[in-house]
Design a protein around this nucleic acid. Structure first.
Lengths: 243, 243
DNA sequence: GACTGTGAATAGGTTCACAGCC
DNA sequence: GGCTGTGAACCTATTCACAGTC
């Protein structure tokens, strides 16, 4: 009870679960593919397969958006594309800035998947003066001195951070101060932001580590029983605390 | 431990929840930072802050690994680093191949976060013959004809796919046939794999779309009180999106 | 007194299974 | 008959709150 409010409990109007929101882009991608092949309608079963989920989950997800299907028939592809796009806010244009134009930043600038949704790379920003003016993906890199002006001039509310870890928090602070309220962070560091600002992170090495965990388990399936319990096989390193 | 009354011994030793596994790399990163600054011990509160989670969750997570802390004191940093590394399988060397050396593949090849964990880029593979031999991040790119041989020679079990969407499934099939059992997929497509093969995906544009959803909702907060949805299912025209 | 470890309570997400409609 | 939409059952994850330990 003493714990105040950290997280606003979902808004009153539309309670779309977070897990559902995270899958909408998946459905949208699958639907876009069908649309390009001029498929008029699709069943929950087919669409679920194309999106890589199961059909019960898909139907449940769609039920949060409304009743957009037809029983006995399925879903109208074009109509669903529109509804999901609207729900995700992709019917409007989102200018984004990418800060940190190293290898990853350049890859992001070149990534086609942004433009094809409602995202437009409004500017590339880097702290290295030597980068200034150099075009990447056809867009000239601007120096980070310009950051605040760029954000303001373009009405940017989404920023992508692809800087080294050490630069991420200061960059984040400046973005937020300049008016950015959503941040996609590729730097391997935890960002602190004020309430009302959303941060999502993508950490490339974390994904690999999760794979390694499962991979290890597969490998150890033969000899699983052996080195299992806390009597760990300390091959090396500090074996403090016996527990 | 926990020889209490619980009548379900089943989930004892190897039952680490997936959500916990996904956070272990986060803790590890925070701990590594502390270790570099020679901090000897850390409380759940401090470590949780550094990792960006709350302390109850962290303690619960650690309780699945075992009792590695000391009441009244906290956790020994070095010891925890070791235990988590071992749990994640990072005390061994994981050779990985990266397939598709475009902008993103090159960024991944250059990404320092891999090497610093147990990951070693064993080879870079691309289908473009013009790329063959060109060094990227100091590693010469090899042609995809060599894929099977490379996997076998290096004992690779983890593959990273950074190809265009269309090439991803064929590449995936070849990786799996050659013995790869874990795949990190950056291509915006759903991969189909046999049982026993793990796939994790990272889709850059999906993350942005999720941000857009929340961003849109923030923007509408002023006018939120207005029409509270539930508008007629066919009130809007499915005006198809621009390509 | 400080802090971990963990049952119990709660919240969130998934799957089942079937009613309702085409 | 085929397929959606959804309450109910189930499962997973998070948070609470406090007993246990140093």
């Amino acid at each position: 009870m003493a714990t105040g409010r950290t997280h606003r409990p979902a808004t009153r109007s539309r309670g779309i679960p977070e897990a559902t929101v995270a899958r909408l882009p998946l459905y949208l991608r699958a639907l876009t593919g069908l649309s390009e092949r001029s498929v008029p309608t699709v069943s929950s079963e087919e669409l679920a397969a194309a999106a890589g989920v199961n059909s019960a989950k898909l139907r449940k997800d769609f039920s949060y958006l409304g009743s957009y299907g037809t029983r006995g028939v399925g879903y109208d592809v074009e109509y669903l594309v529109y509804q999901i796009s609207r729900e995700l806010g992709l019917t409007q244009d989102w200018p984004v800035v990418i800060v940190g134009i190293g290898n990853l930043g350049a890859a992001l600038a070149n990534y086609g998947g942004f433009a094809s949704r409602g995202f437009r790379v409004a500017a590339l920003i880097d702290a290295d003066p030597a980068m200034a003016g150099k075009p990447v993906a056809g867009i000239p890199v601007q120096h980070s001195d310009e950051l605040e002006k760029i954000i303001a001039d373009n009405g940017v509310s989404i920023g992508v951070i692809a800087t080294p870890a050490g630069a991420a928090q200061p960059v984040c602070d400046r973005l937020v101060a300049a008016g950015v309220t959503s941040i996609l962070n590729f730097a391997p560091t935890v960002l602190t932001v004020p309430d009302g600002v959303d941060v999502r992170k993508v950490d490339l090495s974390i994904e690999l580590q999760i794979l390694a965990f499962h991979e290890q388990r597969k490998a150890g399936e033969h000899a699983a029983a052996a080195a299992d319990e806390r009597k760990g096989p300390d091959g090396e390193l500090p074996a403090v605390m016996p527990a």
